[in-house]
């Protein structure tokens, strides 16, 4: 059977994607280093005027209710946290990729951005319940980029979504990712991984993008991070913040229990806190 997606056409589409700015790339690299300091982030933002402007606009958004206008990056970062600066940089550099409707998934315009932002926040919340030390903001960044592959894959996937749903209902495949593999010969995680390599994103983020539905396949040192995003992704879908027809049609890997202590009440807190922070973040990031 011929596959519905031409792999070579996908490769060419990825090749045509604009590269990340050097500031955004540096920012993602710095954030991926667990030993980085806030000062490292401030330096990068200060040297990028467009990023500086967006950060100041976000911190002065009415949702934060600050009485006095914030005009310095140092103060803005202390209010917003690194994760919001990363969100702004990613949004700036990915342009239409996040905001266009995902045709193949029947998602509304902005659906991918909302899902990834919610997943970012939820992944960070999940990471707070880790058994050991955890870089919370790296979990956020991983969540923010985990589904980026859908932005390119969706264009090629198109009508196959209905067939995928049929396969799942009939029990031919176990979840949506397997349906993508079966019908297209590749899936959104592979496409995202190729995009991450094209953008030269840090290896930890590449691992999140490639393995977020099968975290046990990530190399051992990356597994806590990938599991955090795996669970954050599920929480996002449960909260109704999905990317369309594939919403909730994935498997949960119970291996998360090795890394996180999640009881039903903890999970309820994660949903609650994520939804609250998401509302604020979404409002302040309106460009």
């Amino acid at each position: 059977m011929s596959k519905v997606v031409d792999r070579e056409a996908v490769r060419q589409a990825i090749e045509k994607l604009p590269l990340f700015s050097s500031a955004a790339l540096q920012l993602l690299q710095v954030i991926s280093d667990p030993d980085h300091e806030l000062e490292d982030v401030i330096k990068i933002v200060k040297f990028d005027s467009a990023l500086t402007m967006r950060v100041l606009k976000a911190v002065n958004s009415p949702v934060y209710g600050l009485v006095k206008e914030v005009t310095s990056i140092d103060r803005a970062l202390s209010y917003l946290g690194e994760r919001m600066v990363v969100s702004i940089a990613v949004q700036e550099n990915t342009g239409q990729l996040f905001s266009k409707p995902l045709e193949g998934y029947q998602s509304e315009p902005g659906g991918l951005w909302r899902h990834d932002l919610f997943t970012a926040i939820a992944s960070r919340e999940v990471a707070r319940y880790a058994n050991g030390n955890f870089d919370l903001d790296l979990a956020f960044t991983g969540g923010l980029l985990h589904d980026i592959g859908k932005s390119v894959f969706a264009t090629f996937w198109k009508d196959a979504s209905l067939e995928a749903l049929g396969q799942i209902e009939q029990g031919i495949v176990s979840d949506y990712l397997m349906a993508e593999q079966d019908l297209a010969g590749l899936d959104h995680t592979e496409v995202g991984y190729e995009m991450a390599r094209h953008w030269q994103l840090p290896e930890s983020l590449q691992a999140v993008i490639l393995h977020h539905h099968h975290p046990a396949e990530a190399i051992e040192c990356m597994q806590p991070l990938v599991y955090a995003v795996h669970v954050g992704d599920i929480v996002s879908m449960m909260a109704g913040c999905d990317t369309g027809s594939d919403g909730l049609k994935y498997q949960l890997d119970p291996g998360y229990q090795e890394f996180f202590n999640l009881s039903p009440n903890v999970l309820a807190e994660i949903v609650l806190n994520s939804e609250e922070e998401f509302s604020k973040a979404e409002a302040s990031l309106v460009s």
Binding site: M237, L248, Y250, L252
Partner: peptide, 11 residues
């Protein structure tokens, strides 16, 4: 719910 029958996640 998600596709897996996990009690913790069956909010």
């Amino acid at each position: 719910s998600i596709m897996d029958h996990n009690d913790t996640f069956n909010i």
